[in-house]
């Protein structure tokens, strides 16, 4: 593989700088965001590069576990930050994080133990990228789903209450909104599965091909990852939306929008 060094990155960075200048001249109000995001990309990736280098050299189960949990904690924070009306208290963070833990970790461990089966199964070269891709995609699904749920419950609170007044259970009264929320959470992954290879060449496959892998092997891995991601996203989104919808009602099945932060 042809290595890319500081000079090459500098040239690519110049393109980002140009984008930022254009955004500034057009008064898009995002040049600051572009700058911060670009700096974050450089800093975070350099850091994870160093961490992975150290990790791959040691195969220490404890370190791998800790790094996994750190990734989960950060993903949980991202989910919270993307909520327009988030649940108050521990729930806002806890529901997203718990459901991502249950889905991403289960699917990753299943894939490592049964499908890919490296030795040991937690070999960081496989475990960390796999978990990262699952967490990244599940995070999108969970945050979209939860955002749609709380927003939908807020907008349609009168319909929910009308249904409660007619003696429907909380489960029935919020059922339509919950279904829509789960749908919008898993739509991105379904779309990217449908467009894979035709519209876009998925990033992981591209990376493997650039690194010199045979396209057939790269494609097989990509299909595997897509399936794992869709299963993980569906599980995580369903879990988060279900827990979130339960939290919108109390033990007497009253709609409790006071449990949501104002935007």
């Amino acid at each position: 593989m042809i290595p890319v060094g500081p000079l090459e990155l500098g040239i690519a960075g110049f393109l980002v700088l140009l984008t930022g200048i254009c955004a500034h001249l057009l008064r898009l109000g995002i040049s600051r965001n572009i700058a911060i995001a670009a700096v974050r990309t450089v800093a975070q990736l350099l850091l994870i590069g160093l961490v992975l280098k150290a990790l791959f050299a040691s195969t220490n189960a404890l370190f791998i576990g800790l790094l996994s949990l750190l990734m989960l904690a950060i993903a949980g924070r991202e989910v919270l930050a993307r909520q327009h009306r988030r649940l108050k208290g521990w729930w806002g963070y806890g529901i997203g994080t718990t459901s991502m833990f249950l889905s991403s970790f289960t699917v990753t461990i299943l894939a490592l133990q049964v499908i890919i089966a490296p030795d040991p199964w937690y070999t960081p070269q496989y475990a960390i990228p796999l978990l990262g891709m699952l967490l990244g995609n599940t995070m999108t699904g969970v945050s979209l789903g939860l955002d749609r749920l709380t927003e939908g419950a807020w907008e349609r609170r009168e319909v929910i209450e009308a249904r409660l007044m007619l003696g429907e259970s909380w489960n029935e009264a919020v059922g339509d909104i919950r279904r829509q929320s789960i749908r919008s959470g898993i739509m991105p992954i379904i779309n990217s599965m449908a467009a894979a290879g035709v519209v876009s060449l998925p990033g992981m496959m591209t990376g493997q091909i650039l690194a010199g892998a045979s396209p057939v092997h790269a494609v097989n891995y990509q299909i595997l990852i897509m399936f794992l991601i869709s299963a993980g996203t569906l599980l995580g989104t369903m879990g988060a939306v279900w827990m979130g919808s339960r939290r919108l009602f109390d033990h007497r099945e009253r709609l409790r929008l006071d449990r949501l932060h104002r935007p």
């Binding site: 009168e158 319909v159 209450e161 009308a162 249904r163 409660l164 007044m165 007619l166 003696g167 429907e168 259970s169 339509d176 007497r252 099945e253 009253r254």
Partner: peptide, 20 residues
């Protein structure tokens, strides 16, 4: 009573009707 059971027996008609 469970909450749904109670609301079926004690029915509230709000000023604006809602339909889904």
């Amino acid at each position: 009573f469970s909450a749904p059971e109670w609301r079926r027996k004690v029915g509230l008609l709000p000023p604006e009707s809602r339909w889904w």
